[in-house]
């Protein structure tokens, strides 16, 4: 910003403070996780002690494994179905109603989708477990993958697929040799975003999980832990999870065209 006026400076200062507000609390967490004493009462030196403690807690490790299974499976479903959906929607002329339907999973309050899915599974007498979380997470993930792939498709030059068809390629060959390579960065960006969203999702998982350890995800474990206050183990785990999320979202953003990022 070349604006050197007083309002310009004030605006920039405000933006700086906004970033401080957004990142300060997370930074404090991360620094505290490295404190040997664990709590802000005294700084007793940098140590990875609390990270080691985490690895000795079987209930945290099993929750982390469950989360990875849920995130991977729901991402796989959502990436396939969401990409296919995006290709179909973008080929249509009228899509007002479709747009509304595809927007809904992104804006519906989590609690509403959560109780709706719980009611649905209960009515069908489906046993709840990791599988019901996967089915549920795929709902919002399909919508997000579809949205990301659609932005990629908008900058897609359709004359090359027409040329491919004119040269006698079957629709499948055209898709595999031309469309997929061109939209692949968008598909990957959508998949990374979907993985992050599922990895961090708590409310829907909480309502659609079965009883007991076998379908407890990491966010559910965290929720149970933070209700009892601040502990150095939570700080260490929170730091790791934030780093994973930030890395995945950053990677997803790098894959998307300028000016069309989530």
């Amino acid at each position: 910003m070349s604006d050197r006026s007083t309002p310009g400076r004030l605006l920039r200062a405000h933006l700086g403070l906004t970033y401080l507000f957004l990142y300060g609390p997370i930074a404090v967490l991360m620094v505290l996780s490295l404190n040997r004493a664990g709590l802000p009462t005294a700084w007793t030196g940098v140590s990875l002690h609390w990270y080691g403690e985490l690895a000795r807690r079987p209930e945290i490790l099993s929750a982390a494994l469950n989360t990875l299974v849920v995130a991977a499976a729901s991402t796989l479903i959502a990436t396939t179905l969401g990409t296919s959906l995006a290709l179909g929607v973008e080929a249509r002329a009228r899509r007002g109603l479709l747009d509304a339907l595809l927007f809904a999973p992104m804006i519906i309050p989590d609690i509403v989708l959560a109780i709706a899915l719980l009611s649905f599974f209960t009515l069908l007498e489906v046993t709840l477990g990791l599988h019901s979380i996967i089915l549920s997470h795929a709902v919002f993930n399909i919508a997000f993958v579809c949205a990301v792939v659609r932005t990629r498709l908008r900058s897609f030059d359709h004359s090359i697929t027409e040329a491919s068809a004119d040269l006698g390629a079957t629709p499948f060959t055209t898709f595999r040799r031309i469309t997929l390579p061109v939209i692949f960065p968008g598909v990957l960006a959508g998949a990374l975003l979907a993985f992050t969203l599922s990895f961090d999702e708590f409310i829907i998982a909480f309502f659609t999980a079965g009883a007991g350890e076998s379908s407890t995800t990491l966010p559910m474990r965290i929720y149970a832990m933070i209700r009892f206050g601040v502990t150095p183990e939570i700080n260490a785990m929170a730091t790791l999870i934030m780093l994973v999320s930030f890395t995945l979202v950053l990677a997803s953003q790098r894959l998307q065209p300028q000016g069309a990022r989530p």
Binding site: P25, I26, L197, I226, N235, I241
Partner: peptide
């Protein structure tokens, strides 16, 4: 931050 863990962002304020 919006794309990251809601629980942890809330927990940061307890800290």
């Amino acid at each position: 931050p919006f794309w990251s863990n809601y629980l942890i962002r809330t927990y940061a304020w307890i800290v």
